[in-house]
């Protein structure tokens, strides 16, 4: 039932998209082949163009199999430490993402606890936290990188800080909502038990906030990855998926751009899936029925 209901429609759409992709690749890459043929003084028929558009060196739109071949080649056929290995670049981006995500989570939870327990913090900080969501924070990314480089902090940390900056807002907002989710009647019950604020926090507010926390974590990990990738753009293309994108766009290596893009997508999917699994595991331990 689930096969027919869930997998089949998605698969169909994916197949349709791949078909569209192939047609688009032929259409977009054909002018180049016509140009080459025209310059050589020969005419070229459509049936001759089609196979050639599949294997261009620098196509406008690489065909799916070219991208897959490139990913396979740079993932499995190169040593992991090599600068040409996609795994190497993905690892650099992933490490920055995880460090930033970790700092952002801790910071966001602490801030949310403060906001929930202190009225002045709530009233003065919360509007700014929400307002900061509307600001294109990624615009600050290059500056953070360059400034931190100037004072001698280079490498992982500046990128991680951008991820932190991006990931901690969804966590603050989600956690504030979650820590406030216990109803008055439940808080009253804790009161009749003569529970201290700390006990109320650990036994009621904290468990109640878990679903909210994990929903925020999913958003946060995806956005940390974006932060780490964008953070790599202004460093002058040294290493990482973002640098791979930038180098690819400088040298017109479209296949390289697309493979970096797919690697980033796979990374995002895996990270979100891990958080999702943790989500179900924690809720199961807490006795929530699915």
């Amino acid at each position: 039932m689930t096969m027919r209901d869930k997998v089949f429609p998605v698969l169909t759409i994916v197949l349709i998209l791949i078909a569209i992709w192939y047609v688009a690749a032929i259409y977009l890459n054909a002018p180049f082949e016509r140009d080459t043929a025209g310059r050589a003084g020969t005419t070229i028929t459509f049936s001759e163009i089609v196979p050639k558009t599949m294997f261009q060196e620098r196509p406008v739109l690489p065909a799916p199999h070219q991208v897959i071949a490139e990913i396979w080649d740079t993932t499995f056929n190169k040593p992991v430490t090599s600068k040409r290995s996609l795994v190497y670049h993905a690892w650099i981006t992933l490490s920055a993402t995880l460090v930033g995500f970790g700092i952002g989570t801790v910071l966001g939870i602490l801030l949310a606890v403060g906001i929930v327990h202190n009225r002045a913090m709530d009233r003065s900080l919360m509007p700014w936290v929400i307002a900061s969501q509307t600001i294109p924070i990624l615009a600050i990314a290059p500056m953070i990188i360059v400034v931190l480089n100037a004072i001698g902090i280079a490498g992982l940390l500046p990128k991680a800080l951008i991820s932190t900056y991006l990931s901690f807002f969804p966590i603050v907002v989600g956690m504030v909502k979650g820590l406030r989710s216990p109803e008055q009647i439940q808080l009253d019950l804790m009161h009749t038990y003569y529970a201290s604020p700390a006990q109320t926090f650990w036994k009621l507010r904290w468990p109640a906030s878990m679903p909210y926390l994990f929903t925020s974590l999913k958003v946060a990990i995806a956005i940390s990855l974006v932060g780490a990738i964008v953070g790599e753009l202004p460093t002058g293309a040294v290493a990482g998926l973002g640098a791979r994108l930038l180098a690819g766009s400088y040298y017109g290596q479209t296949v390289q751009i697309w493979s970096a893009l797919f690697m980033a997508a796979a990374l995002a999917a895996v990270l979100v899936a891990i958080v999702g699994t943790a989500h179900t595991a924690v809720l199961k331990r807490m006795g929530v029925k699915p």
């Binding site: 990624l138 995806a222 766009s249």
Partner: peptide, 15 residues
């Protein structure tokens, strides 16, 4: 929605 979609930027600039 969860993907780093900004990554398509270089491709769009090229096109």
């Amino acid at each position: 929605s969860a993907l780093p979609v900004v990554g398509v930027a270089p491709i769009m600039v090229m096109w």
